[in-house]
Simulated scan of single mutants.
Amino acid sequence: MIYTAIDTFYLTDEQLANSPSRKDGIDEATETTLRIYGCDLVQESGILLRLPQAVMATGQILFHRFYCKKSFAGFDVKKVAASCVWLASKLEENPRKARQVIIVFHRMECRKENFPMEHLNLCSKKYVDLKMELRVTERHILKETGFICHVEPPHKFIPTYLAILETPPELRQEAWNLANDSLRTTLCVRFKSEVVACGVVYAAARRFQVPLPENPPWWKAFDGEKSEIDEVCRVLAHLYSLPKTQYIPVCKDSRMSDDESKDMTKEEHVLKSKSDCRSEVIGETCKDKDRNRDRNRKRDRDRDMYRTKSRDSDRRGYKHF
């Protein structure tokens, strides 16, 4: 990954309590549910797109950062999750085409919302609109994060910490799973990755009843504090107590929100006009293909009919002879 700036995107509890979603009347439970739902979309789509875990971790952190700046009422969680996956795949040098991301999210939406599993026609206006929305939302993410896309997930610290502490091998997988689950919470925008890594190591050790040195405390060697580690464990415990999340429609407009319409730049208008032109060209191309296919079918039918008539006439001539 290309590092563009230092990792300084952290918020206080007061700032999170006064998030843009809260100001728009969305309660804490709904915001938490939508955050978890969006991160689940990022994780599941990454698996379907065969992306490494680093891409999914980057996408989820970008997702949380964006909704610290914007409201769920202004930007639909599904569109933002798709754009985060697309942007993260490019940042982590495992790029996927926009077509692949759109198709995967379309299939997931049909399955999760019990919609008919229909094929998404790449020549349709719906696909062109989805592609335009994917690009526009990606630009909003870059704009709100100030193009600071440096992400440092806690996963990279876990092997080092466990090797220094000389823990048993089974602790590594448990700590890794807890680190994956921590990305579904706001821990990534509250604490540094080193602190989150200490928290998941501590939680994994408690679960497997593995003693860790406390005199002196082991977390001091990794720039951690006991209060912060306890908070990480508390947030993870609360996460596991929540039921399975469902999509909650809180966006004001399902097609184009007020914030999107207000913040759309001149370049995005040009992109939309180009997409419309491309849609018309694709539509004409598809019509030409349909006409050619019908013409070829008619020609084949006429040829088969001519051959049948020729065989019949030959048979009648043979009988007469």
Rank of each mutant, 00 (worst) to 15 (best):
F72E: 04
A57V: 04
D181H: 11
A179L: 04
T167P: 14
R107C: 07
V80Q: 02
R99F: 00
A163E: 00
S182P: 14
K69Q: 15
K125Q: 13
G74R: 03
T167E: 07
C123M: 15
N180Q: 15
R99L: 08
A179V: 13
M108K: 07
L178H: 04
M117F: 09
L162W: 03
F66L: 11
D181M: 05
N114F: 14
H106R: 15
K131Y: 06
A73S: 10
K131L: 10
F105W: 09
A175H: 01
K79N: 10
E93L: 00
P168M: 07
D181K: 04
P153D: 02
R96S: 05
F75P: 00
R172S: 08
K90F: 03
F75I: 08
S182R: 09
L165N: 10
R96W: 05
R50I: 01
I103W: 00
N114R: 11
N121T: 06
E92P: 11
K143N: 14
E144L: 11
E152D: 10
V101S: 02
W86P: 04
K112I: 13
N180W: 12
L130G: 05
L165D: 05
Q173H: 13
A88P: 13
T137P: 03
P169S: 09
E166N: 14
F115E: 15
P52I: 08
H155A: 02
E170S: 14
E138I: 02
H140W: 11
R99K: 14
F66R: 03
Q60D: 01
C123P: 03
L91V: 07
M108S: 10
T160E: 08
L62G: 07
Y127H: 13
R107Q: 13
I148E: 14
L87G: 06
A163S: 08
T185I: 12
N180L: 15
